[in-house]
């Protein structure tokens, strides 16, 4: 039995009929074909599925698509600040500091980092590590992810200063 939902994803409105049990992550991946959001575990642990719903970072494997009815959702595909391919400072940071290897955790990691920098534009190393504790990476040992987020924080601070 389908339920109709209306959502906005990366600024675009969608109306879809979903099965109530469909997870938000599967709605994004299978229905909208936004496959940058990944599924890495069954237990809300790994964070590969992280997206923003109404501005808050959430794990989309632990939310039903019906629960997102009426919400504004942002995924990795919507990270470009001008929607036109310009990289967000975090995306740039991950490239510049080699913050990714296989790339599977990267979208979730970037979404987690963006949530952090919104609240704390000037995080310490410990604060960064704490903020991404719900995002697993098996490739990098997190070293360069921390540096990538620091890179983005620096760059965003400069952007704010130069307004």
């Amino acid at each position: 039995m389908g339920v109709t939902i209306q959502v906005k994803v990366n600024g675009k409105p969608y109306t879809s009929e979903v099965e109530p049990r469909q997870l938000l992550t599967h709605y994004l991946r299978d229905t909208l074909r936004l496959t940058g959001t990944h599924v890495g575990c069954d237990t809300s642990s790994c964070g590969a599925c992280m997206v923003h719903v109404d501005g808050e970072a959430i794990k989309s494997c632990t939310m039903l698509a019906v629960q997102a009815d009426g919400c504004d959702i942002k995924t990795i595909e919507g990270m470009s600040p001008d929607g036109n391919g310009t990289l967000h400072p975090l995306q740039e940071g991950f490239k510049e500091e080699h913050g990714l290897q296989c790339g599977f955790c990267t979208p979730g990691m970037i979404m987690a980092a963006e949530a952090l920098l919104k609240e704390n534009p000037n995080p310490s190393e410990a604060e960064i590590r704490h903020a991404i504790e719900g995002n697993f990476c098996r490739c990098t040992g997190y070293h360069n992810i921390v540096k990538s987020i620091q890179y983005a924080a620096e760059k965003m601070k400069k952007e704010v200063q130069h307004g």
């Binding site: 809300s44 964070g47 992280m50 808050e56 970072a57 959430i58 794990k59 632990t62 949530a115 719900g134």
Partner: peptide, 9 residues
């Protein structure tokens, strides 16, 4: 509790 995303929900 949990991690930031868990705390948000």
């Amino acid at each position: 509790i949990g991690d930031p995303a868990v705390r948000n929900k």
